[in-house]
Every structure is written in structure tokens, then in C-alpha cells.
Nucleic acid binder design. Structure first.
Lengths: 364, 364
DNA sequence: CTGAAAGCGCTTACAG
DNA sequence: CTGAAAGCGCTTACAG
């Protein structure tokens, strides 16, 4: 039937053999194997797999092809397809640190959405990859991914690397000046809700444990904090704003600073913490200082997660759409061209989750 | 010089164009481009890149090649290399849930080690990929990875999928009966240390909040707990063992069970919690029940992490070599053949980190 | 409508 | 020692 099969079919001695093994590696199954057994041309098999609408095929032939694929356990070789089509159907997600629970939510949203769209998502971190930015240039910059999602608050120097990569990219959860490719949350709105919650309880002296000064998210949250105070006719007291990194240790140090810097009378009655990890440390510092939460001081933090409800006391938070953020970034990455602007603000479900760490100020 | 260049060189109309864009996608640079500009054959460029020891080349020619690569910003196409060599230089890591901080440590260790060995690591989760096990068959089972690390405590039904994949794999942090491909921690030893710590403080009535009954890690930790009690001449009281999943909510419920099931006189004076996430919930339950930690009851948990030191009270833990676990799994995956047995127990740095949640039992 | 053939960008055994 | 040529496994425009 098939007079000459120029290549393929020769299944012997695969390059798969790994040093140290004489394992009977089962020969890889290729398109040709399927075609041969099903009695059709390779191109037909390919078209069946890819649901080519221009393929005219009798239903029972299609069925036979599908059954043969099943029977042989054929899986399309990603490298060959990738080489041929110049697409990998993979997206890369880069985060600073897997230990930060905020990213877990983003990753989940991104993974699920990627799956829906027929993409795979590979996540990596700069924390684990100690080699730094250079390493992912190697990792992703060889056509391994069709797009790169960059989450987190790095210094921004990786932008240069990104250009070298020549891979479509988008920033997730941060803006970089001079770029128009980002998907962010409405941190100002969320922060406003947090402050409004405290205001509605009667607080007037509200402190803010902000994120790192270099972080874009921190800046936007601080602005939301200030704006909300302004709307309430309150002045922003710079002594009530302390910067910390997004870690328990940072939050603890920041709270200590806040407590020691003020005379007891000037002490804030409430604190809005820019991050739930910092809030863990802040609660610890308050406990160590002998202050009761919320009796002496109320605490609310940005970002909700399962942990928050189980802290002592259970932490009031602002739930932000982190999963939606990841999902939206994937969607836009898949839909938009590599040079199209992406300037999206995800605002959808933002709400205060009231728990036990906030109440009316003391003496009210 | 090069009489006929059968293919390559034809750089026009790349398949890169994405719908919706007329972006001036810079033409991809190939080996041929480098060879042409450097005035050598493609094979020479390839050999330079791969440090082929059999290549005899004048130092200045090598230098010229390297400079040309730099100048053109050439990066080797991963798909082409992969197709040719039948290797991807990628490893996959599969975890159940990014929100579980235990995995963050494993991922970091694995990523760093993979980088050192010249591999990339792509991490994915079954939690995010709602499609379940089937999805990663598609994801990884097409030659995308040279090996698959499977972390976590799934039911084990994915083993079948793994065989379909025909990809070398290893279980990380769990054993499955009937397999000889795993890297685990010495959970028995770690649990023993935890119990020994409590014993040395004078506790005799020690409870255990165990992991899920189906989880291999939970079983081994429970065995370590029982064995340590046995060594101390104490009987294991089954009423003092409660199973929970590895979440704050699970730990909270388990602690509640423990407290309500016993008469106050029979109440344990200490609890060994199999997981730090559960311990967060356990602390919460104790607080809610009006019990002081450690005055009324001591708590120690498996796995150390930054969070633990900032809980109220700061949690005493057993630090396990999670990073080393990930690193070792990568090492073995890279070194061993796909059918060689891998039965490794990582024992290296296991130690009790004493903080504020453990002390002598009340009334001692 | 169908199938044969070209070609994606590499690596490497092999001929010169 | 060096370079030309084959071929990895796909997809798809194109000839029949």
C-alpha cells in the first residue's frame, strides 16, 4: 500500500537508552506506526488528531484511527510538533517565592485557565533558582513557552532579559513604568475597603504596615490607604506608616517600630497590614507587647487565605481576586498578540472578610 | 564558500505571527545564521555550543563563533534539539497543592538542584489543574520532560497514568506499595524526636494529631510516635490518636475531638501534630477552648517553616530536610536509569526547634 | 478529495 | 581533521 516510507518505521535502537540502564524501554510510538496499523496515511492521522475540518473521512475510518491511537498508546511528540508549528502550547509563570501563599492562589487560577485553553503551565521561581534571572533565559528563551507571565515585585531589571528572550510576556500583579503589558488587581480599592471598615468601627488613628518601598503593589496599597483617610477628612500621619517586606519577620519588626515610636497616648487604635504574611508577625508583636487584639488594637490585612481564619485571633482580611488575576493573565496572554498592549485591572470579587481581629476602638 | 544551503537561511514569513498582531516579530536566529556570519559550518557552531571535545578548532575561530552567537542573540531551539536528541533537559514536579507550605521547600530544593545539573524544572499541581490526572498525561507525556517527580499523598491511582506516560518517574515524600522508586524523609525518626522532646519535659500523656489515614507520611509519623512511646515504656492509647487532613481546619477539628472525647482528668498534657498547617488550627482550637499553651497543654508539630516562629505562641517544631528531599530526588532522577530502583531515605538535618509552645506538664 | 513530500532547527555518525 | 548529509516526528501547502 505504502510503496516507500522514507523515514519512520525504523523503530530499533532509540536514543532513549540512559546510561546505567538496560531497561527494555518500550519503543516510542509515532504517527507512522499508527498510520501503518490503521491502514491510512500519516497525514490523515495527524488531521484526525487535530480535528482538521477540511478532512473528509468516513466515520468508521476515523473510528479505526482513534482506536489504533488508543491501542498503541500513541502520544504526539511535543518537540516535533513544536518544531513544526513554532508553538509550544506551554505558558511559563515566574514567581519570586513559592513560600508566599499569595502566589499559590495566582498559580491555581492560572493553571486552571491554562488547562481550559489547551495550554500547559510551568511555574518556576527565582528563589529556588539561585542562579537568578540568567537561568530562566535559558529555561524559557528557547521556544519552550509561547508566553511568559511575570508575577511579583522584583526590581525590574529582568525586563532587559525579557527583551533578549523575545518571548511574549506580561507582568502579573505589578506595573512597571514604561510598559503597557500588565494585569493587576485594584489594590487601591481593596485598601480603601480595609480602611473604610476600620473607620466604620469608629477608628480615627489608623496605622499602615506597608510593603517594601520598591514594590508596586505596596505603593498602590499605600495610596489606597491615604485616599480613604482623605475621603474621611483625616490627615495622613507619616509616622503611622512603616514599611516592611511581605514576611512574618518583617511585619513583626514593623509593628514593634510602630509601638515604640509612639507615646502610648498617640498609639494607633487600628492597623491595616498590606499583606497577610506580615500580619502574622504583627499579631505576634502585639501579643509580645501585651496588647490585646482587638480590645486594645484592631488589625486588618490584605489578602484572604485559609490560614487567616485560624490565627489567634482569627484575622479580618480583604479578599482579593488572586485566582482571577492568574486566570485573566493567562487568557490575555493566549488571546493577544505579542505586541498588543495589555493593561488590565481585575476588580471582580473584592470584599472584607470580618473575623475577630477588628472591633470598635478602646474606650468607645 | 557554502555552495548549497539546502534549507535554513530562508528567514522570511515565520510562523510566529499571532492573530491580532502585525508586530514586527524579529526573525528567529538559527544555527545557520550564526554559521553564515561566522564563516563556519553549522556543525562547527553546534559543536562549539555543546563543547564537543572531539572538535579541533583554532582558538580565534571559536572566539569568533561565540561572539557571533552573542551578537545575534542566538538561542538554541529547544524543540529541535529535543526532537533530535530525544531529551528535553526538563524535569517535571507534580504536587497536590501549592498552598501547602511544605511543598514550597521541596520545590526550592528541587529547582536549585535541577539548575545545577543543567535541567529546568516545571512544577504543576493537581489542585490547580482541575481536570485531574488526565491533564498531566497530556502535559508531560509527550517527551516534554525527561523525568517526573511525584510529590504528595494522592490515592495512588495515578500510577497507572504514569505507566501510560512511559516517562521515568519517582515518588517524592511517599512510598507506594509495590514500587521501588521513591525518595522519602525519615518521618519515623523525626516523629520520635518530637515525642522524645515531650517525654524529656516530663509528659506521659501525649496525644497525636495524625495526617489522613490514607497518607503514607501520616502512617510513618504515627509509627514513629508509637515507637517512641514504646521505647519509653508507655502504652499507646488509641483514644489519643485523631486523624486529620493537613490543613488548619483539619487540625482544629481534630483538636476539638481530642478535647471533647476525654474527661478533663484524662486530657493529654501534650500533643504531637503531624503537620504544621494542622498545628495552626490546633492552636486555634486550644485558644477557643480556653486552654493556655504551653501552661495547660504543650504542642509540637512536624516540619519547620518561617511561619512557625511567628504564631502565638511560637510553635516548637521538628525541622525536616525538605529542601534536601527535593534536591536528592532531582539528583537521582538525573543519575539513575528509568528502571533502576530508587529507594532513598533522606535523613540528614533533622532537629527539634524549641520555641514557646512546649514546656513541662501542668502541676509538675 | 487524498496522499506524497517538504521542511521546522538541530546533532552526529560518517564519508571524504 | 572537517563538513555535508541524514534524520528526529510532526504539520500542511500543494500536486495529482
Amino acid at each position: 500500500m505504502t510503496p516507500k516510507r522514507a523515514q519512520g518505521g525504523e523503530r530499533a535502537a532509540p536514543g532513549r537508552t540512559t546510561p546505567g540502564t538496560s531497561a527494555p524501554t518500550p519503543g516510542k510510538v509515532t504517527l507512522s506506526d499508527v498510520a501503518l496499523l490503521a491502514g491510512v496515511d500519516r497525514s490523515v492521522v495527524s488531521r484526525v488528531i487535530n480535528d482538521d475540518p477540511r478532512l473528509n473521512i468516513r466515520p468508521d475510518t476515523r473510528k479505526r484511527v482513534l482506536e489504533t491511537i488508543e491501542k498503541l498508546g500513541y502520544r504526539r511528540n511535543a518537540a516535533a510538533r513544536s518544531l513544526r508549528t513554532a508553538r509550544s502550547y506551554m505558558l511559563g509563570l515566574f514567581i519570586p517565592d513559592f513560600a508566599n501563599p499569595v502566589y499559590a492562589e495566582i498559580i491555581k487560577g492560572a493553571e486552571t485557565e491554562a488547562g481550559k485553553l489547551g495550554y500547559g503551565l510551568m511555574t518556576a521561581s527565582s528563589e529556588g533558582v539561585r542562579q537568578g534571572v540568567e537561568h530562566y533565559v535559558d529555561l524559557f528563551g528557547q521556544g519552550r513557552v509561547d508566553g511568559l507571565l511575570f508575577a511579583g515585585d522584583e526590581t525590574g531589571r529582568e525586563l532587559e532579559q525579557l527583551r533578549i528572550l523575545r518571548v511574549p510576556w506580561v507582568m502579573v500583579n505589578r506595573r512597571i513604568t514604561g510598559t503597557d503589558r500588565y494585569v493587576v488587581l485594584d489594590d487601591e480599592q481593596g485598601s480603601g475597603l480595609a480602611v473604610d471598615h476600620l473607620l466604620s468601627l469608629g477608628h480615627r488613628r489608623i496605622a499602615h504596615i506597608a510593603g517594601p518601598e520598591t514594590a508596586d503593589t505596596a505603593r498602590r496599597r499605600r495610596m489606597g490607604y491615604s485616599a480613604a483617610l482623605g475621603r474621611a477628612g483625616l490627615a495622613v500621619d507619616p509616622r503611622l506608616i512603616v514599611h516592611a517586606d511581605y514576611t512574618p519577620a518583617g511585619g513583626r519588626a514593623a509593628m514593634d517600630t510602630l509601638l515604640t515610636a509612639q507615646a502610648a497616648a498617640d498609639r494607633p487604635t487600628a492597623v491595616f497590614v498590606a499583606n497577610v504574611a506580615s500580619a502574622v508577625g504583627a499579631l505576634h508583636a502585639l501579643h509580645a507587647a501585651g496588647l490585646a487584639v482587638p480590645a486594645d488594637i484592631s488589625v486588618i490585612a490584605m489578602h484572604d487565605m485559609p490560614l487567616a481564619g485560624h490565627l489567634v485571633p482569627a484575622l479580618t482580611t480583604v479578599r482579593m481576586p488572586l485566582g482571577e488575576l492568574g486566570a485573566r493573565a493567562v487568557q490575555l496572554m493566549a488571546a493577544r498578540g505579542p505586541a498588543d498592549p495589555i493593561t488590565e485591572v481585575v476588580t471582580d470579587p473584592v470584599e472584607v472578610v470580618v473575623r475577630d481581629s477588628t472591633s470598635a476602638p478602646p474606650g468607645s
